[in-house]
Simulated assay, not measured.
Amino acid sequence: MIKLIKKVMSLLGLLFVVFVLFIAVLNYFSNPVKRSLFGYRGYTVISGSMEPTLSLGDYIITKEHDFDHLKEGDVISFENGQTIVTHRIEKTLPDGRLITRGDANRIDDQLAVGEDEYIGQMRFRIPYLGKIMIWLQEPIIFGIVMALIATRLLIAIFFYSEKESRETNTH
């Protein structure tokens, strides 16, 4: 029974490390001026303009999608100056630009989104992950998490080398 618990805990630890690394890499590639990670980018929702669809602190994953195939009702991310905005498409203008609006807003956005501002279409929402990511930006919390990950890796390396050593001595 203890062996099973150790295996489960080891697997959970590994999954946690893989998840943290995946989110870190995804965030690195989420800057609009950088290449995306296989077309995917991740963003933390920092306003309530898309309530109830997206809540403050949600984490969304967008995917590059052909601008010409977007339609009314799609939720897209785009650049508005130095800000990345995620809103719903309300209509398409005759010149092909898009009028967007946050679900909680009463009026359309002032900026019509063209292909140059467009980043991607929302594909996934992970509730509360953005809050955790903001929390992890605190230096003390970040240090503790990195120490835990390093400890987990050291334990895995030590356990593996100790096990390998025992197997070598028994042969």
Rank of each mutant, 00 (worst) to 15 (best):
A150G: 10
I132V: 13
I126N: 09
D108C: 07
V75A: 06
E72H: 11
D66G: 10
I61N: 14
P139V: 00
R88A: 07
N80H: 06
S77R: 10
F78G: 04
A104C: 11
I134V: 15
H65S: 15
G57C: 12
A147Q: 09
K131G: 14
D109R: 04
D58F: 00
L70T: 10
I76T: 02
E90S: 09
D116E: 15
L56T: 03
A150W: 02
R88T: 09
L70Q: 09
I61S: 06
D108Y: 02
Y59M: 11
E51W: 02
I46M: 08
I132C: 01
G48H: 03
P139A: 14
A150S: 13
I61F: 05
R101S: 14
Y43N: 09
V113Q: 05
I119P: 00
Q82V: 14
L136V: 06
I126M: 13
N105F: 07
G120V: 08
P127Y: 11
Q121S: 06
T83G: 03
P52K: 08
G73W: 06
V85H: 03
F124C: 10
R101C: 10
R123G: 10
K91C: 01
T53N: 11
L129I: 15
S47D: 01
L54Q: 00
K63V: 11
S49Q: 06
G130S: 13
P127R: 10
G96N: 10
T44M: 08
Y128I: 13
G120N: 14
D103P: 02
Y59C: 07
